[in-house]
């Protein structure tokens, strides 16, 4: 049986109680949202599960800063949230339709997805591109860029993710997501995303990401930089995709070779940027 040494399953009603348990139990405790990763865990170290589902952290709210998503909100609840229907042309919804299948999306939580940091995660690849911020609680609340969480996992020890914020963007901003997998619902062989903000038609802000390389998604700063101050057209898109192909670290695993992934980075970045270019010029897909 998985979780063979599990001794207690706790559902605190207060965040401070949850944090205290995590602090007291140390490495023998795990925080769960949906819990689907841990159910299959064979780790003998896990003795306590702290379930956050009674902390009223399931919500998707439109705020003046953007769209706030509570940590225990399931991927289905995010997918069905009216606040995200038109957020950046529905890019979050489009991405979530490609994550697993409904029985998984009904369990997997936003916080669990970000904390588990699976390298193939479609959510993380897109959220990094969108400049998502996460709220952490370790006795005090603080908000950090999602990219910081992966730069220093120490931020989570001990702390609990309580919320993610997808920032509000002005008109003239568009985003796209692209996933390569054997079937639509399989784990990604590679995924890409981009966010482009424009001023007078020129790229003012550019965020490009690639994930499942097979490592966790990272930003592609060199490829993004080449677009700054330029218009999106066949030439600039081709250059950015080419730089992404040359600079993204890829390697072999059981799903694909590094060489194949390198070509997918090129194709993915090119398709994402082409998609954004069409959105910004008002051409329907």
């Amino acid at each position: 049986m998985a979780l063979s040494n599990l001794k207690e399953y706790v559902r605190p009603d207060e965040l401070d109680v949850a944090l205290s348990l995590v602090k007291e139990r140390g490495t023998s405790a795990r925080v769960i949202g949906g819990g689907i990763d841990l159910v299959r865990s064979s780790s003998p170290d896990i003795e306590t599960l702290v379930d956050l589902s009674h902390l009223s952290l399931s919500y998707v709210r439109q705020t003046d800063k953007g769209v706030a998503i509570g940590a225990t909100t399931t991927l289905t609840e995010i997918l069905e949230a009216p606040a995200l229907e038109n957020y950046l042309q529905g890019v979050v919804v489009e991405m979530l339709h490609q994550v697993g299948a409904p029985p998984l999306r009904n369990l997997a939580s936003m916080g669990g997805t970000l904390a588990s940091a699976h390298p193939w995660s479609d959510v993380i690849t897109l959220f990094l591109a969108l400049g998502a911020q996460v709220t952490l609680y370790n006795g005090v609340t603080r908000m950090v860029p999602l990219s910081d969480l992966y730069a220093s996992r120490a931020l989570l020890s001990p702390a609990i993710i309580t919320e993610a914020l997808l920032p509000a963007y002005a008109k003239g901003t568009a985003a796209a997501f692209m996933k390569f997998s054997r079937t639509k619902f399989d784990i990604a062989i590679l995924n890409c995303a981009c966010l482009i903000s424009t001023q007078n038609g020129d790229c003012k802000g550019v965020r490009l990401t690639a994930g499942g390389t097979p490592q966790l998604a990272t930003l592609l700063p060199a490829a993004a930089e080449v677009l700054l101050g330029r218009r999106l057209n066949q030439t600039s898109i081709g250059q950015a995709a080419g730089i992404a192909r040359e600079t993204t670290l890829v390697r072999d695993d059981l799903r694909a070779s590094g060489n194949y992934r390198r070509e997918l980075v090129y194709a993915g970045v090119k398709r994402c940027l082409t998609c954004v270019s069409r959105q910004l010029s008002g051409v329907s897909q």
Binding site: I36, R40, P102, N106
Partner: peptide
């Protein structure tokens, strides 16, 4: 969590019961 043979409705949503702890 791959095959769906164990699917049940938890409240009103389909889930794989093999991925849900009974305690949850």
């Amino acid at each position: 969590g791959d095959c769906g043979a164990c699917a049940v409705l938890l409240d009103d949503r389909v889930v794989n019961s093999c991925l849900v702890l009974a305690a949850k």
